[in-house]
Design a protein around this nucleic acid. Sequence first.
DNA 1: CGCACTTGCTAATCCGATTTAACGGAGGTC
DNA 2: GACCTCCGTTAAATCGGATTAGCAAGTGCG
Lengths: 345, 345
Amino acid sequence: MPGNRVTMADVARRAGVSPTTASFALSGRTDMRISDAARDKVLAAAADLGYRPNVTARSLRTKSSQTIGFVSDTITTTPFAGEVIRGALDAAREKDHLLFITETGGDRAVESGLVNGLLDRQVDAVIYAAMYTHYVTPPPELHGRRVVLLNCLAPGFDAPSVIPDEIEAGRTAGRTLLAAGHAGGIWAIGGHQAIPASPDGNFAGLERMRGLQEVLRDAGGRLDGVVECDWNAEDGYREVSRLLAEGHRPRALVCSTDRVSFGAYQALAEAGLSVPQDVSIVSFDDQDIAGWLKPTLTTVALPHLELGRRAVELILGDSPLGASTHRVLMPLRERASVERPRPTD
Amino acid sequence: MPGNRVTMADVARRAGVSPTTASFALSGRTDMRISDAARDKVLAAAADLGYRPNVTARSLRTKSSQTIGFVSDTITTTPFAGEVIRGALDAAREKDHLLFITETGGDRAVESGLVNGLLDRQVDAVIYAAMYTHYVTPPPELHGRRVVLLNCLAPGFDAPSVIPDEIEAGRTAGRTLLAAGHAGGIWAIGGHQAIPASPDGNFAGLERMRGLQEVLRDAGGRLDGVVECDWNAEDGYREVSRLLAEGHRPRALVCSTDRVSFGAYQALAEAGLSVPQDVSIVSFDDQDIAGWLKPTLTTVALPHLELGRRAVELILGDSPLGASTHRVLMPLRERASVERPRPTD
DNA sequence: CGCACTTGCTAATCCGATTTAACGGAGGTC
DNA sequence: GACCTCCGTTAAATCGGATTAGCAAGTGCG
């Protein structure tokens, strides 16, 4: 039984002024002249009564709801999703905005329904997010609206994208191995593929490999091979096992995800090879397991919190949102899986 | 440049009727008499124009926004959070509701601010959720409102709770071992503690242990010991290593979480013991790693998706929400870590 | 002193729906 | 024919704010 909400009319009555004056005093607009005395009376009355403006009523008139829509494919399912959302939530809260979170499951009809639901509620802007970095085509309902693309790209769609800087991440992985003295015997596990794989390879995969090879080449090192496989533990295990069975003896592995690394650890352990003495491993993502593995895994972290935060900051900024790409740096988490290679036997 | 939205006035004009008639025709109310002809005209006009009602305007009048607030402590951080939210999202979508997701970080002031933000936007109801099952005191702003407690309990607060059925989960774990022929040499790793630990133990811990012991006792089996430790990989590894070092030779382990199991696997492998031939393991939670471990881990799953779904279904149901507790069953995921014990040497 | 201009405030509208009260015409009754 | 009752429909009020137009009192200036 929450007593009836205090309205602006109540505040005005108590302050002995008109609702108009109360409105101006409360919104603090300077273009309309309100005496200090009147303003103080209104503010005092509002404080006394514990007045809080009804955002719904305000939205109806101003068309702005202090609300952002977040539309994603299956992002809440991924292990990192929480971080993206948390970053977005934090940034939104700092500016008194709330987030509608929705998930389409990749279904266009559902997506359309949800976007309309958001629009029906007069959201000020929409963040269109994807689980893994790839190309998307946002629904027509979003054309001409204030939109930021999160972890995805849409050429021809006039909105900025916020994505992880995968090229630089690849460079970071390469530099990490170089700094430890690795120059050869390096294999990449996972390569360009991902789940779900796209015919022309995966954005993250392509860029990571590019950055990695660029850095190795420039330093006179080399990548002995790239093993293409899905980015999960099962494939990591299978492919590394096969690599060893075929007689290869890698000194360092660059695994596409921590899950692949997990599989690699299992395969190496089975073969009696130890990390990092026999084989160094550098990985990407920084999932929780990276810290649980023995030895702990050195990995280039996906900056999920920062991605979410940046998207919201961008969308709540004053500048108009044109097409542009914002790359967020992927920080290296140095742990225990990279070591100087033993002198070749 | 989204053209101006179609309003009900537009629809009425096109159908050649008054806005009132349009409203009644569209809302399909039977208590006000509208001729079939008029109704058809309105519906046709609405379809032609692609009319969608402005939920904000409607909310102002009806006080109902077809919107639910979701307030959690740090739920988006946990690995399962996504599932809870997804369950809630799905159930909400089925009834054309949208969810405001918020996270307080455990800060009362922030919590209060967010709840007020939700109330300012006229949410119809609020789901108050916790990362791990425990006792909470919802903020005063929520008193008297339509609230469902998710994964938490608040004695004295007049609202239903939806929590995992941890007692039954403990029984399930016990029965799984009994069914495989284990009757002794069973140790529980993790016990009653959790992160963050509360002085009187952890709800899930207490109930799981209770269910486990009840089932073992009734079957004439026994629990050789309960090792109390935090519910993470590090502690699991340390405590199982210690157990073995002290000369104990468990035949089965009941680990409080998959993370603890992960640590246990590491410790057992180090000691040259194999799962499940030497030691069977049954666990709780069903995180992703449960399927990546070798052998894959048999575990009693936290029903996160179902928890989220049930909370929303309850909140959108017609029945008044009194204090009550809804326990959601935790299903067993049978995998490869439980096996019949070898005959004692 | 009279006119223009500023200052400080308020009455009246508007936003886009829902909902209440009432109205005109058809049909029935006596 | 006067009076009533249904029916189908609509004008008008309402929700809680924001905004526009305008009004009265005070000030400046010639």
